[in-house]
Write a protein that binds this DNA or RNA. Structure first.
Lengths: 206, 206
DNA sequence: CCTACCGATCGGTAGG
DNA sequence: CCTACCGATCGGTAGG
């Protein structure tokens, strides 16, 4: 007998089936274009059965955005990225994030839906849940304080994450979303290089 | 008598009234959450009257995204930004874009709606319309070819625009959308400084 | 015959 | 968790 310390109740299994059914539907169609009947059908239950687990349609989205929002994946990836020097860390962290983004091209869609269809209503409480991890990352950047040009760590982190995100978002903004992300690791390397050294030639600083 | 070379027909005026009514509704609520009745009410006409100008609801959005997509504003701003040196241009262009973004906090929402609710269906043809302007911007960056570290101009432009966008997007991603954007011009200056010189100390390049 | 637009209502579907 | 429904509203269209 395999010990199962937390045997999920049948109700919890159904709840998870509803979330698993709704998640890809929301990402592919958006929130308002997804019907409760679609979710129920994909979950293998009746529409009314959903309401035994969620009081309203929007509560399904609320549960999803707290369970699966991208920040809780991005921040641990950045923290786990190896590298004793700032350069190594930056390139490793960028590569790890790019790999994650390639494996999950819908990474940011949950946030986009939140912004467009919920007017960012969940954002404040969402930010609160990740704030401790942001502080952890700040302290890691403080390790290399002597290497940087005295720029505040929060601005560095914000710029770095913005770099990687914008590199990824640009695929959304220049072409069709369909198909897996075609990424050029060399381009990513160049972008990180700009982050570290800027676009100007050494010695050209005026 | 004022000469009016292209007096808009009454039909054209109504068409523009429909677009002017639908635009803020789409930005505030998203596409699917906006009803034709809301659009008609705001335009001051009956719902059925819309169908004299648009065959279907989605044709309203199609017209809007081609008329008012953010790229056609961003690219001219970048091209018009003054500056004889690369540094001057970068800071001026960033400031001009930030001003534009502050005045229009919903700048990117049209693209987000396109991504989420239309699966980026308009993106390929949208990109075709702005491609000539991108080429123009590339040639401007080529002017300072001797100042940069041999990085390809497209990557520089992509990184620069990504910088400014990500700086702006971060407000969406860390707090509520409501209210005008609170922007710190000093922060923006620092981000541009990182773009030009990197985060590392001069002489620390290994 | 055209356009622009109306009040009323179509077949289906929304969340509950 | 189901079948059977509700008030209302959806996008779109009828004749005039």
């Amino acid at each position: 007998m395999i010990p199962s310390p937390n045997p999920p109740s049948k109700g919890e299994l159904t709840r998870q089936a509803i979330l698993a059914a709704a998640y890809p539907l929301f990402l592919e169609q958006g929130y308002h274009a997804t019907s409760m009947r679609q979710v129920a059908s994909r979950a293998g239950i009746a529409v009314s059965a959903i309401y035994n687990h969620f009081a309203a349609k929007q509560d399904i989205f609320s549960a999803l955005i707290f369970d699966r929002h991208p920040y809780q994946h991005v921040l641990p990836i950045l923290q786990r990225a190896p590298g004793s020097t700032l350069e190594e860390f930056a390139h490793n962290a960028a590569r790890a994030m790019l790999t994650e983004l390639e494996n999950r091209p819908d990474f940011l869609k949950l946030i986009f839906i939140e912004i467009i269809e919920f007017q960012g209503a969940h954002m404040p409480s969402l930010f609160q849940t990740v704030y401790p991890q942001v502080l952890n990352l700040v302290s890691r950047f403080d390790t290399w304080d002597d290497r940087t040009r005295g720029l505040p760590a929060p601005i560095i982190i914000r710029t770095f994450i913005g770099f990687i995100f914008s590199y990824f978002i640009s695929q959304y903004m220049t072409g069709p979303i369909t198909g897996p992300a075609r990424k050029d690791a060399d381009d990513m390397h160049t972008v990180v290089d700009i982050f570290l050294h800027g676009i100007l030639k050494p010695g050209e600083q005026q």
